[in-house]
Design a protein around this nucleic acid. Sequence first.
RNA 1: GGCGCGUUCGUCUAGCGGCCAGGACGUGGCCCUCUCAAGGCCGAAACACGGGUUCGAUUCCCGUACGCGCUACCA
Length: 479
Amino acid sequence: MNSDIRVRFAPSPTGYLHVGGLRTALYNYLFARAQGGVFVLRIEDTDRTRLVEGAVENLLRTLSWAGLECDEGPAQGGPFGPYVQSERLELYAAHIQTLLADGKAYRCFCTTERLAELKKAQAAEKRPPMYDRRCRTIPVEEAERRAHEGEACTVRMKVPLLGEVVFTDEIRGEVRVSASVIDDQVLLKSDGYPTYHLANVVDDHLMRISHVIRGEEWLPSTPKHLLLYDFFGWTPPRFAHLPLLLNADRSKLSKRQGDVAVEDFRAKGYLRDALVNFVALLGWNTSDNREMFTLPELVAAFSLARVGKAGAVFDHDKLDWFNAQYLRALPADALAALCTPHLEAAGVDVGDRARTDAVLAAVLSHLTVPADVVEAARIFFEAMPLAEEGEAREALAAPGARVVLESFARLAGDVSPWTRDAVKECIKAVQKDAGVKGKELFMPIRAALTGRAHGPELPVIAELLGRDVCLERILAALR
RNA sequence: GGCGCGUUCGUCUAGCGGCCAGGACGUGGCCCUCUCAAGGCCGAAACACGGGUUCGAUUCCCGUACGCGCUACCA
């Protein structure tokens, strides 16, 4: 165990886990495990206007479902807790005092209204929207007096007017930003809560985070964070900014363009191994064409060096393919555990476990998610209306259909036991008897038995249905 | 508008100066086959553009274009 390596996943509790968040969490987890380091979960709930009831619990549950167990976090605690930012307010306040005392930050009394006007004016003049630093020159004594008298204020960082911030991103290499374009960012809001910028720096330092692995949307604010580390006299962690996950139109992956919540995929029946495997490959690969990985295999193979730079479109088709692959690799009992609830919900009696397993095996290649089993397996549990599919109706209306069915009904009586092989033989006998083969032979029987023109192999269907049901449906079709 | 990041098949990607530019999803065809699905085989499909550097650029450098992100008392 290399406890010097410490990473964190720091989501804000919005109510659900975004798949982009899942990937960020996954890479952090993989990096930590691969390095023998520590994976920390920290809740960033400093925006009290966006509190969502039960969000943290849901986040914990979803992360755990995905198999991403953390070493330190709100559930299990740890040596650097608490791990929820709203419980760390005194810490931020103390650090703000330090900054204020050192002249690295200043109180700002500008109202939201003035700020809005300023922004509007700047936009009208096509000037970059930055705080004009009006309060930066207020004498400290005056500022303190006004604050103590109860005047609402925020605290802003005093960004150097000159110079440049340069750092090396683990994924992108050297990034340089001129200090002149860095805003005097608010660090402490007027409600006493810190902004992300302050809280994340203070916490990452206090929690001894060695590598900050986060989404690329944070790249532009990293210089501010670096400045803060400098203000505090701290050694900053290393940064790795992950490429974004994209919608099909290449904009940042968002709701309104399909599911983005891990919970949604879970609810739809996507297997966690399939989702994790798929998401892991969005921005990372092993250069050897391999793409099937279990979580432990990902840990063994992962390295930050092989994370790409460009955004990756979330391709639902490929996710479906992964899920189908994982579904087919499942042992029979696991498959049954996943599928039978859907069958039961659809009113199917799954009491005969052996038969249910056989049905599942017969339709497995038609499934993308477990819920598909209901539609795929209906023919085994209920008589389908013969007119449902035009193709099936045509097969029954074909010239030789009647002869085939009558022959089948007659010969089926001699079949014993009623197994798929025996049925196969029986169909051969019908072929001879009725004098038709191929499509003309199979389709009428298939249509009569299932009401459909498509499905698993006919002998398999017949075996699963049992002789009585088969005869029943054949007779019904003849009427 | 400013700043930053990015750019190989439709999509995910391999490639780290010399390759017929490889794989996967999707897609087209064929095979298997009573049908569909699965599976197997085959195919179409990409280096954004322009300059350099070099004997030689997908690869290195610089521009341009395009895309995306950020630009809140949200994270």
